[in-house]
C-alpha cells in the first residue's frame, strides 16, 4: 500500500519533540572552545549524551547515540523500507568488512556497522562458506565479483572499488524506486561527490581515465567521461573548470581551495539538499533531515573530540566541523 504524506504525522511530531535535544551551533561552538577533551565530554554529557567511563574511548558514546537515533527513526516511520536507500551503503560496507575479515582470519562481527538492510551474519556466512546465493539480489553479484577480485587477481583494492561503486549505484536505484524526491536528490549528490573525489584523488596520484571510469558510479548530473578527462589532463584546476558547467560549481570552488573544504561542502550539501521540506508537518523529509542531522552531529563530535585529544587548535577544528542548522 502506498504511504501518504499524512501517514507521517505521528513520526514528524515525535521528531519535532526530539529536535529540542539536538546539538545546536552554539553547543558546537562551546565544544570547540572547551579547554580540553574532558571538558568537551562534560558538555556532551550535560546535553544527554551517554557518559563515557573515565579514560575510556568516546566511540561507544557515539555508537549508543547512533543506535538511539536509529531506534527513534524506526519508531517514527510507517514503513522503515523508505530509508533503505540511506542504509543500503552499510550493507556494502559490511560486505567489504566480511571479505577482508575472512581473508585476514579476523572475526567479521567486530567490523560490522549498523543499521543495515541485510543481516551481517548472513553476509558473513555467505562470504565464509562461499554461498553467495543466500544473499539478497542487491548484494549477490557484487559479492561474487569482489570475492573473485581478491581470490583470482589478489587485489583487495579492486574489490573495494567494485563494492564502493555498486554501493552508490544501488543506493541511487533504491532512492529512485522509493519515489521520494529528497532521497533521490541525496543519492544523486552522494554519487556526484564520490565521483568528484575519485577524479581529484586519481589526478593527485596520476591514475588514468580508464581507472577513474571503472571507479565512478552512474550519475545523472555529471558526465563521468568529461570529469575523468579533465582530471587526467589538468588535475584539480581542470576539474573545477568542468564543474562550473554542472550543478556542482560551488564544489569546484571548494576543491580549488582545499580537499578539506570540499569534503565539508559535500557533507553540508547533504543537509541543504532537503531544503524547506524539512520544516513540513508531513512526509518523510523531516525524519530524513533529523537522521542526517544526527549523523552530521556524530561526525562533528568525532572530529572535535579527536582534535581535543590530539591538541589541535580551535581554528583548525572549526575548518572541519560541518554546518548544522537545527
Amino acid at each position: 500500500m502506498k504511504i501518504k504524506e499524512t501517514d507521517y504525522a505521528f513520526g514528524v511530531a515525535k521528531i519535532r519533540a526530539n529536535e529540542l535535544d539536538l546539538l545546536t551551533p552554539v553547543d558546537f561552538d562551546n565544544l570547540i572552545a572547551a579547554n580540553d577533551y574532558r571538558s568537551a565530554l562534560r558538555i556532551l554529557e550535560d546535553k544527554g549524551w551517554e557518559p563515557t567511563e573515565n579514560g575510556a574511548s568516546f566511540a561507544p558514546m557515539l555508537e549508543k547515540f547512533e543506535d538511539k537515533t536509529w531506534q527513534l527513526v524506526c519508531d517514527c516511520l510507517p514503513d522503515v523500507s523508505v530509508f533503505d536507500s540511506l542504509i543500503l551503503p552499510n550493507d556494502f560496507y559490511n560486505l567489504k568488512a566480511a571479505i577482508k575479515a575472512v581473508f585476514s582470519d579476523l572475526e567479521p562481527n567486530d567490523y560490522f556497522i549498523k543499521p543495515f538492510v541485510t543481516d551481517p551474519a548472513l553476509i558473513a556466512e555467505a562470504v565464509t562458506n562461499k554461498k553467495f546465493d543466500i544473499l539478497p539480489k542487491h548484494l549477490k553479484d557484487t559479492a561474487v565479483e569482489a570475492y573473485d577480485a581478491v581470490v583470482r587477481v589478489g587485489s583487495g583494492r579492486l574489490a573495494d572499488i567494485i563494492i564502493d561503486k555498486a554501493s552508490l549505484n544501488v543506493a541511487l536505484a533504491g532512492a529512485k524506486q522509493s519515489g521520494n524526491e529528497a532521497l533521490t536528490a541525496l543519492a544523486e549528490l552522494s554519487c556526484a561527490c564520490a565521483n568528484i573525489k575519485i577524479a581529484f584523488r586519481s589526478a593527485e596520484t596520476g591514475r588514468d581515465t580508464d581507472f577513474m571510469l571503472r571507479c565512478m558510479a552512474d550519475c545523472d548530473t555529471l558526465d563521468n567521461k568529461r570529469l575523468a578527462f579533465a582530471a587526467a589532463e589538468g588535475g584539480r584546476e581542470a576539474i573545477a573548470e568542468y564543474l562550473q558547467f554542472t550543478p556542482y560549481a560551488e564544489a569546484g570552488e571548494k576543491l580549488s581551495e582545499s580537499a578539506v573544504a570540499f569534503e565539508k561542502w559535500c557533507d553540508d550539501s547533504v543537509l541543504k539538499g532537503i531544503g524547506a521540506k524539512r520544516f513540513s508537518a508531513f512526509g518523510a523529509e523531516p525524519i530524513i533531515a533529523y537522521y542526517l542531522t544526527c549523523l552530521a552531529a556524530v561526525k562533528n563530535v568525532r572530529i572535535i573530540l579527536s582534535a581535543k585529544l590530539n591538541g589541535v587548535s580551535s581554528e583548525e577544528i572549526r575548518k572541519r566541523v560541518r554546518n548544522i542548522n537545527v
Binding site: 511530531a13 515525535k14 526530539n18
Partner: peptide, 10 residues
C-alpha cells in the same frame, strides 16, 4: 496522530 507523537515524548 501528531499529538500522540508529541505526547509520547513529552
Amino acid at each position: 496522530e501528531a499529538a500522540a507523537g508529541v505526547v509520547s515524548e513529552d
